[in-house]
Design a protein around this nucleic acid. Structure first.
Lengths: 214, 214
DNA sequence: CTAATTCTAGACACAATGTTCAGAATTATA
DNA sequence: TATAATTCTGAACATTGTGTCTAGAATTAG
């Protein structure tokens, strides 16, 4: 998925980095970020400790590069996804729709579950989780803007947009966290549908977009 | 607020512990949990390094005791607060109410801002943030149960309650985090009102409690 | 005032970090 | 396949932080 630089990279380098990253994730999930030493990582990856420092400055550097790649990937995929909403099959029109962008985010979590688990636990540096929150806030902002662009009604937000967007991002993160910690008892599509069912309707209300029927 | 044991404690002990806790919080906010050493803490607190180990096992022990006291205090206060909702002043009845329990939580954050900042950043161990999330989820559950107890309508939740409650707790945490990181641009009462404005209405919808008027 | 408690400074063994270096192993490429 | 370049390795080293222990100084409770 990530790290496909233009320059050709020695096989050993790719293999080494993948091993190190995998070892770090596994070890963090086993005993927590703080308890993991560089020697732990290289032993698990079956590499010399010296090799580690050939590639990364320290433990945090390794984790942050992994997270950065993950987030870059998410941003890329989000950018390639239309913001439109599809009406759901045969459902009576309760405003129930399916937004591919939302489903995509949950799908991304499912694919990279281990890394998201580490990220959402805030292991390592807080900056990673903060970045994810900003990205989700931005995505939510874009969705809202996209949906309201076609509406001729004037917006009368019940709360400042910043407050609302950050709350929804928090709900998203809380939902993903619960989902991962519970061992993903629902599919990513189900999660996306539930997220919409909970918050898309109230979004219109909070924005002041409710016109008539409850 | 916390640590009022029955036994009389030597003045020096209280002073020392308060100094150490204050120093740790300040240092974490300055340069992050990982970068803080025990010697940093004792130097800032103007104490000998040996003294630290007279009171705490390590850095994490100190932080966790502080967080534990904080959470105990929050739980205590929540337990003493009625779950009822007061109707807001002269407002037209848009279902807008004021729930003391919600306001109390935001107030608690304002009073202990530094510690919450550290806690919400997930500095130290993830377990603390996880505990807070569970407490908020529990509080939300209680509120929902309390509100619906008087309703004769049968509930038809649109999503599993666990999903909904965890999302709302996430929104709460996201909102508090944003609030703290932005330097608390609103009062805790305003925050509580906004939280309710965003989610109390949609809660009734998600629970299937919408009867007539939108 | 005095006995008990707490704080202090210095020394200690230990664990992990991050660097260096010479040589072994692997890889790209011709 | 041969060879030059790159990457990996293991051992050694200085450095930093940890957690413990001591004897004695300082503070506190009563």
């Amino acid at each position: 998925m990530p790290s496909n630089q233009n320059e050709k990279i020695d096989r050993r380098v790719n293999r080494t980095r993948r091993s190190l990253q995998g070892a770090l994730l596994a070890l963090i999930l086993e005993k927590g970020y703080d308890a993991v030493t560089v020697e732990d990582i290289t032993r698990r990856a079956d590499l010399g400790r010296t090799t580690f420092y050939l590639h990364y400055r320290d433990k945090e550097d390794l984790l942050m590069q992994a997270v950065q790649d993950l987030i870059d990937d998410l941003v890329n995929e989000l950018a390639q996804t239309p913001l439109d909403a599809w009406k759901l099959n045969g459902q009576e029109d309760r405003g129930e729709v399916f937004v591919p962008a939302i489903a995509l985010a949950f799908h991304h979590v499912a694919i990279h579950a281990d890394l998201y688990r580490v990220l959402l636990r805030g292991e390592g540096t807080y900056s990673a989780l903060r970045r994810l929150r900003k990205i989700l806030s931005g995505a939510i902002s874009s969705l809202i803007q996209h949906f309201t662009a076609y509406s001729r009604v004037e917006l009368k937000p019940q709360v400042p947009m910043e407050v609302f967007v950050n709350s929804l991002a928090g709900a998203w993160i809380g939902l993903m966290t619960w989902w991962l910690e519970e061992g993903m008892p629902y599919s990513s599509e189900e999660m996306a549908v539930m997220y919409q069912r909970m918050f898309m309707r109230s979004t219109r209300e909070v924005l002041g977009l409710i016109n008539g029927e409850g």
